[in-house]
């Protein structure tokens, strides 16, 4: 193993890097070490660019690792990552992180690519009785919605901030949580996504009576 920016890595070959919505991709490469659903790893393409972290979106028993990512318009890394083709080299760290400890009947609240660790938990069969509340700006960005609809049915709630009324709640995740009649203060809450979404949602949950000990967050900093 070599290191860049104090992180050990190995070189992997890209298996696929598929656009799934405008600016959003699923990147796949071979799984070389075991991981626990909810963990992340660091990816890189050159030692000149700092490593970036990505949650693993695939299940623990899958042969390949899937990463769900969006290309940032002025992003130093994702603009290059999105150009990778099958067979290209990728720097990959060992899986790390502790967003892995799940209590029964979890409520997963995610924005955008923040759905990734929850997909991994669901695909690993670790989140029985889960409710998933996912926020996105347009319908295209409800990643994995087919699987989620099939497996969770009514326990899959999509909050779309720029959609016409239909199969979605029209508004942001935070608007939904503010008025959610199904909110149960005894369930464990897991939040994942941008700082703004996590901090605001956490404040709303607390104001609605959820104890801080029942809220666990992963921030995509």
């Amino acid at each position: 193993m070599r290191t860049w920016n104090e992180i050990s890595y190995e070189i992997q070959r890209v298996i696929s890097n598929t656009p799934i919505a405008p600016g959003a991709y699923i990147l796949k490469f071979k799984k070389n070490s075991t991981f626990i659903a909810g963990q992340a790893l660091a990816l890189g393409i050159s030692e000149d660019i700092e490593p970036r972290y990505y949650s693993i979106a695939s299940g623990e028993n899958d042969d390949e690792i899937s990463i769900l990512y969006t290309e940032k318009p002025d992003g130093k890394f994702t603009r290059i990552l999105s150009l990778l083709k099958p067979g290209d080299n990728l720097m990959v760290s060992k899986p790390f992180g502790k967003f892995t400890q799940l209590s029964p009947f979890p409520v997963f609240i995610a924005a955008g690519t923040g759905i990734a660790p929850f997909m991994s938990m669901l695909l690993s069969g670790k989140a029985k009785g889960a409710v998933v509340i996912h926020g996105a700006s347009y319908p295209d960005y409800f990643y994995y919605s087919e699987i989620l609809l099939n497996t969770l049915g009514e326990n899959y709630i999509r909050c779309c901030s720029r959609c016409q009324p239909g199969s979605f709640y029209v508004g942001r995740v935070t608007d939904y949580i503010k008025q959610w009649s199904g909110l149960n203060i005894n369930r464990p809450y897991y939040l994942c996504g941008s700082t703004e979404m996590v901090v605001e949602t956490r404040d709303i949950l607390i104001s609605r009576g959820v104890p801080i000990s029942s809220i666990n967050s992963e921030i995509y900093f």
Binding site: I212, S213, I219
Partner: peptide, 16 residues
């Protein structure tokens, strides 16, 4: 404590 730090500081999930 891991559990408590996680609730105060989300970074605990990334760098315990």
């Amino acid at each position: 404590f891991d559990e408590e730090r996680r609730m105060l500081m989300p970074i605990q999930n990334v760098y315990p």
